[in-house]
Design a binder for these strands. Structure first.
Lengths: 183, 183
DNA sequence: TTGAATGCAAAGGATTTGCAGAGGC
DNA sequence: GCCTCTGCAAATCCTTTGCATTCAA
């Protein structure tokens, strides 16, 4: 597959100028579309309109999202481009399998984020507004290798989520507190 | 409340000699029972047989567990000490609220572990056998405070899970590989 | 043509809820 | 006795599955 010529991802994913991408993309040789095409081809799977539609939506921005949010961004039933909920779930699993997306659990639901072409990072989770803020930290790999060697553990991946209150929510809180004080 | 005299937790929770506790308990002034008693009292809630039963079961060992595993350890319906599933869920939420337990999501289900009287720690998760191994790492608090100050984020807690393959599973794999080689 | 993929409807599993009766305080 | 708590049954939420049909190759 991969009919179009190879190129780096850097220009691509943020054409839309959508919010939510805080980190710089990583240099990779194939677009997600190309990489997924290779994945399908190598497994005798087919490139369908639904898979293309979802690929387009998922890689039009860098936001974290869950299955529901993705469904909400799809055309309604009956409209061209509509994809059923079961197919959304099936396809998300394929994207994860293909290495395009990473999946993790937050408050009982599955959250997805870009993996391919996106740098390793971790998250701050605001328990007030629910926002997820990305950050990078090199020191973590030292911790991982140290712990791994201490326990004879073979590390495949990790997930660090720091919970608390983000800056905007702290400011809101302060405003509220001042108001209360005045009463 | 708190009728019995204060004491440290150190002797208590592991009387049973159950497996699963890898870290040394932390010195605290109240038993979980006392602390939960205070919690109930301060909110006008009642000390019921069900809550006492669950308290006893949950603090008879240090293993991680989910609601199902706790239900399995309860007497069967009709037997004395039986607690219904809804009450188990309601009570686990109360234990979390009281600061006795911590809750986190793993593979789509809620996992609980001791919080009160148990030291801060993180987990290695073996994707082969599903085991959770605890480890402690001081360097993480440096990371947390650094990231917090960089993002103006107020940290309340964190959750780090390192996934991979544990030592026993790696050994099993090696044995299998050797067997395959011989064929 | 042919088998893979989709959509539908329905199932599944974990967790929650409404409510009438039971039981702490 | 009052009001909280419990157990039951049913509902909810997210996700998956079986199957007939559609469609990419």
């Amino acid at each position: 597959m991969s009919s179009s010529p190879p190129e780096t991802l850097e220009a691509k994913p943020n054409d839309s100028g959508e919010p939510g991408s805080s980190l710089a993309p990583v240099r990779v040789s194939l677009t997600p579309q190309q990489r997924f095409g290779d994945y399908l081809q190598s497994r005798g799977m087919r490139s369908t309109q639904q898979r293309q539609m979802l690929l387009k939506l998922v890689f039009s921005g860098h936001e974290h999202f869950d299955a529901d949010q993705l469904v909400d961004r799809l055309p309604a039933k009956g409209q061209p481009g509509y994809v059923s909920r079961p197919t959304v779930y099936r396809t998300l699993a394929e994207f994860v399998d293909a290495g395009l997306l990473r999946k993790f659990e937050l408050e009982g639901r599955s959250v997805y984020e870009h993996d391919y072409g996106y740098p390793q990072h971790d998250h701050l989770h605001c328990t007030e507004c629910g926002s997820l803020i990305e950050f990078q930290c090199d020191a973590l790999s030292d911790i991982k290798s140290k712990v791994a060697s201490e326990h004879g553990f073979q590390v495949r991946s990790h997930r660090l989520i720091i919970s608390g209150v983000c800056q905007p929510c702290r400011k809101k809180r302060r405003r509220v507190r001042r108001k209360v004080d005045r009463i």
